[in-house]
Amino acid sequence: MNPLEIEIHSLTDTDRLGQALAATLPAGTTISLIGTLGAGKTRLVQAVAAALGTPREDVTSPTFVLLNEYTSGTRPVYHFDAYRLKDDDEFLNLGPDEYFEGVGLTFVEWGDLVANCLPSNTVRITIEPTDGESRHVTITGLPPEDAAALKASLGQPGA
């Protein structure tokens, strides 16, 4: 499972990536989002949720509430934020297993802080700001068929 490298140059590109992820990732996928403050982690979750039918404006960062659930779309989106948690036990007390095993997509912002608590097949998305709205995105942990489908939906070579 080689990493998938994607260059994003605008918010429209982020929306396209969100649409592609919504179309590609199977139900029950857990996604660890990694990046600095302001890298675009919540924006990517907004794009995925919008592609699944949840109004973008309903999707907010769960920094202070720790978990938001969006169930108005065609598939649920569960959105955790581990930034303010003290340790793995605090994350586990949120009951993430029921979400990991559910029919939705589970996003964990700052997933690297609770990596030991995430399923072994977690997809990892690292977002690195490069300039203005531009981002370098690295996706690891996708099964080959999902990586190929994602590349194809983004119009990337090697699909």
Rank of each mutant, 00 (worst) to 15 (best):
41 K>W: 08
43 R>G: 12
43 R>H: 11
45 V>H: 09
45 V>P: 10
45 V>S: 05
45 V>T: 14
47 A>R: 08
48 V>C: 04
48 V>H: 06
49 A>F: 11
50 A>V: 11
50 A>Y: 02
52 L>W: 06
53 G>M: 13
53 G>L: 13
53 G>F: 15
55 P>I: 15
58 D>R: 15
59 V>D: 08
61 S>E: 08
63 T>K: 09
63 T>I: 04
64 F>R: 04
67 L>T: 07
67 L>R: 12
67 L>W: 00
68 N>K: 06
69 E>N: 05
70 Y>D: 01
71 T>D: 10
72 S>R: 14
72 S>M: 12
73 G>A: 13
74 T>D: 05
75 R>T: 05
75 R>F: 04
76 P>H: 07
76 P>Q: 07
78 Y>Q: 01
78 Y>H: 12
82 A>M: 07
82 A>G: 10
82 A>C: 06
83 Y>A: 00
83 Y>D: 05
84 R>L: 06
87 D>P: 12
87 D>W: 03
88 D>M: 11
88 D>W: 08
89 D>H: 14
89 D>E: 14
90 E>R: 00
92 L>E: 13
95 G>C: 10
95 G>V: 09
95 G>P: 06
96 P>H: 06
96 P>W: 01
98 E>Q: 13
98 E>L: 06
98 E>W: 06
100 F>D: 03
101 E>K: 11
101 E>L: 14
